[in-house]
Design a protein around this nucleic acid. Sequence first.
DNA 1: TTTGCCTCTCACATGGATGTCAGCTTTTAG
DNA 2: CTAAAAGCTGACATCCATGTGAGAGGCAAA
Lengths: 128, 128
Amino acid sequence: MAQITPQLSMRIGELSTRTGVSVRSLRYYEEQGLLASIRSESGQRHYGESAVERVAFIQLLYTAGLSSKTILDVLPCSYAPSEQTSDAAADRMAVERDRLSTHIDDLLRTRDTLDELIKINRAHRATL
Amino acid sequence: MAQITPQLSMRIGELSTRTGVSVRSLRYYEEQGLLASIRSESGQRHYGESAVERVAFIQLLYTAGLSSKTILDVLPCSYAPSEQTSDAAADRMAVERDRLSTHIDDLLRTRDTLDELIKINRAHRATL
DNA sequence: TTTGCCTCTCACATGGATGTCAGCTTTTAG
DNA sequence: CTAAAAGCTGACATCCATGTGAGAGGCAAA
């Protein structure tokens, strides 16, 4: 009989090392329902290979300014698409996509402004 | 003799209304050295027209994820370029510009990923 | 077995912008 | 003149991802 779950040998320290995310944060993700683990008899967390990618994605969404609550709405459907989640998730993703686009526009404007300032600064320095 | 400073009639409430930034935050900006005001005899803050634009810019930088400390490094030189500020500011702006570019790239990647998820979600829903 | 590292839970600390409340003074409108 | 609205300072509260430390148990190599 084949293993249902392939190597669950990874413990939290290794996952931390491989993702660059602190152990503390990984536990926090679990607490928020973003990251599942299988517990050994003694209570230690074990993860499969896929956890690495999942953590990376969580990080990406955090970087994009989503809260853990929002990530929770969006993330599950990418792993376990189901009727239950897909409706709410679709809305949520659309909303976040818009928010993200707006934010990107803001940042682009800010960068342009910064470039202006840099140019002005350079011009000013040239006159010294 | 002409007025050195044109209308300084704006009080904090009006500035708040016109910028959409809370009174609390405007006081905080002042505390951080980002926004100057002229105090009346009784201690009330008064601002010139230019404050509106300045606050908008501060907001823009906050939105871009700069801290007030960093904004302080960058902002003054756009208003009062001087030898003192221009060197540090030039460095700071370059650093922030890079950080901003990286962040923008992250966000673009995230948006792409989100678009992927939305597409997958839609495909999934179509099969119901 | 002993040593050393890893993990566990619980809980408190942090930072940064902003909210909020209290108590008081100033300004403005009726 | 009086009351409402707006300002002032100071201090404490909040959110949220993380850091950090304590105290205890788990696991592998010597």
